[in-house]
């Protein structure tokens, strides 16, 4: 199908306008973060920073707790994703390949537990962590995030394993592998893209959390994650929007970059995990 010139122009114009409109908040976040504080209280607003203030970022990095909070966010996300993935990979493989008594029920429960409201789960977790003395510790967050990542990752990986023909590990077993060896030497290498996508999702889930972090870490400022930091900035520096936006951009950047570079795998994983 050939388009006329007019149709092409219209199509491109629509794409540009729609993208511009939908991505404006991200653009505005970047522009604000670079604007001098005085420019924020001027009408009309500046849509392009005449002299970008990089000092906002250097200040944020060297004179606030922001780097530490970013580090905490990353640490929690990495550890909880790693632990969750470890058990999820095995469970997903088991659910995908073995017919077991109760296997279906476990699978169904895992699917259903994706639906548990976090605002309800947090109440007993609060009690448990308090009695275990985990309040204010990053471990409380790691465990809480695992409650979300394990069911999610198990279901997503099961979908991925289902798409790998069973003959592959049968061949490996005939070739002399134990079922365990077949999993590690054949199935896992073959599912590397799926594993990467699942890990990234787990990371995103944990990184984006605000509910658990705010509740369990409230008093332990040094253990805060980036998200609590930003939400608190919003209250404290009521008018220093350039600082708040700079911090926000720092918190959003890792995930946005991961999304931009790994979009193909992420989208594949997302649709496989929930569409199936």
């Amino acid at each position: 199908m050939k388009r006329t010139l007019l149709q092409s122009i219209l199509l491109y114009a629509t794409v540009i306008v729609v993208c511009g409109f939908l991505l404006f908040p991200i653009y505005w976040m970047i522009i604000t973060s670079l604007a001098p504080a005085s420019a924020l209280r001027s009408f009309p607003p500046q849509f392009w920073p005449a002299n970008p203030q990089w000092s906002t970022y250097t200040n944020l990095i060297f004179n606030t707790d922001m780097p530490r909070w970013l580090f905490n966010s990353a640490l929690v996300a990495i550890v909880s994703t790693a632990i969750s993935l470890l058990v999820s990979v095995l469970a997903a493989y088991s659910l995908s390949r073995y017919t077991m008594k109760g296997g279906e029920a476990v699978g169904l429960f895992i699917l259903m537990s994706k639906m548990l409201p976090a605002t309800m789960l947090i109440i007993p977790l609060f009690g448990i962590f308090r009695s275990l003395g985990l309040m204010g510790s990053l471990w409380s967050l790691i465990i809480a995030h695992a409650t979300a990542i394990v069911p999610f990752a198990t279901w997503m990986l099961k979908g991925y394993f289902d798409s790998i023909p069973q003959e592959l590990e049968q061949a490996a077993q005939v070739d002399g592998c134990t079922p365990w060896g077949a999993l590690f030497r054949v199935i896992l290498p073959v599912s590397a893209p799926g594993l990467a996508a699942t890990a990234l999702y787990g990371f995103v889930l944990s990184w984006a959390d605000y509910l658990y972090a705010r509740t369990f870490l409230a008093s332990a400022t040094h253990n805060w994650t980036a998200n609590i930091g930003i939400a608190t900035f919003k209250g404290e520096y009521q008018t220093d929007w350039n600082v708040i936006m700079a911090a926000s951009l720092l918190a959003a950047l890792p995930i946005m970059l991961a999304y931009l570079f790994l979009q193909r795998y992420l989208v594949g994983g997302l649709t496989a995990g929930s569409g199936k």
Partner: peptide, 8 residues
Amino acid sequence: QNYALYPH
């Protein structure tokens, strides 16, 4: 039947 060659 589907050869089951290791793709990696």
